Amino acid sequence: MAQAELTRGLDADAARRPPAAIGEAALSAASPRWEGLLPWQARRVRDYVDGGLDGRPSIRGAAEQARLSPSYFSRRFRQSYGVTFSRFVAHRRIERAQSMMVGSSSSLCQIALACGFTDQAHFTRTFGGLIGATPSQWRRIAVRPGDEINAIAYG
């Protein structure tokens, strides 16, 4: 009779499952799954990337900042930002280069090296692929008074 009282409020399938499975089913149905990085993880990863743009920020180092395994971090990162980690790093490097091109008279080669590109050719290829113009073209337009430049922005 005790078994009948316990199972009276449950459906037939739930009564046959072990108690742990019932709790898991209720938990998964009741609470939505979090997708992407948590806010504190995204902030720490962004700070890690921004602090290491002149070097080589790695996915392993970023995963350590988020306290996740590299493979799980990659999946969560893409869910948060919509791009891969390496693409995100390239975007951040280009953003830094754009601010340096507008704010200083340094040569493009110096800016490329300061932003972590291996050489000016690598910088020009990456910049052109993301922005649609060469760095020198973009710089000429950006320093003209009255022109508005739309810099890329992530996070």
Rank of each mutant, 00 (worst) to 15 (best):
M100N: 03
I131L: 02
Q110C: 12
P145D: 10
P135F: 06
R125Y: 06
A153C: 07
Q120M: 10
G146N: 07
P135M: 10
M100L: 15
S104K: 03
W138S: 07
G103L: 05
C115W: 03
C109L: 15
G128W: 01
M100C: 04
S104H: 04
W138T: 01
T126W: 00
S106F: 13
F127P: 09
I152F: 07
L130W: 03
R139W: 06
D119Q: 05
A114Y: 00
I141C: 12
G116Y: 02
R125L: 06
S106W: 15
F123P: 00
S106T: 03
A133R: 15
R140A: 13
A114F: 01
T118G: 11
G132H: 04
Q120F: 09
L108A: 06
Q120H: 10
L130G: 04
M101I: 05
R139D: 00
G132P: 08
G129I: 01
S106K: 15
R125M: 04
R125H: 14
F127Y: 07
G103S: 04
C115H: 06
I111Y: 02
P135T: 10
N150G: 12
L130M: 09
M100S: 04
Q137A: 14
F127L: 09
I149S: 07
A142P: 01
D147V: 15
G146L: 02
M100I: 10
S105D: 15
S107Y: 08
S104V: 03
L130K: 12
T124Y: 01
A153F: 12
S106L: 15
G116N: 00
A114G: 02
I111F: 05
G146R: 08
G132C: 04
G146C: 06
A151V: 10
P145S: 11
P135H: 07
A112E: 01
Q110P: 00
Q110H: 11
A151T: 10
N150E: 11
L130E: 09
A112R: 10
Q137C: 09
R139Q: 12
A153K: 13
F123G: 00
A121C: 08
C115V: 03
P135C: 08
D119R: 06
S136N: 09
C109S: 14
L130I: 08
C115Q: 06
G132D: 00
S105M: 14
Q120E: 13
W138G: 02
A112C: 05
R139V: 03
R125A: 09
M101G: 06
T124P: 01
G129W: 05
D147G: 01
T126L: 11
R144W: 00
S136H: 10
C115P: 00
A151K: 13
I111S: 04
V143N: 01
F117D: 02
H122R: 12
G103C: 04
M101C: 05
C115Y: 08
H122K: 13
D147I: 13
N150T: 14
P145Q: 12
V143F: 01
F123K: 02
I111Q: 02
H122V: 12
T126K: 13
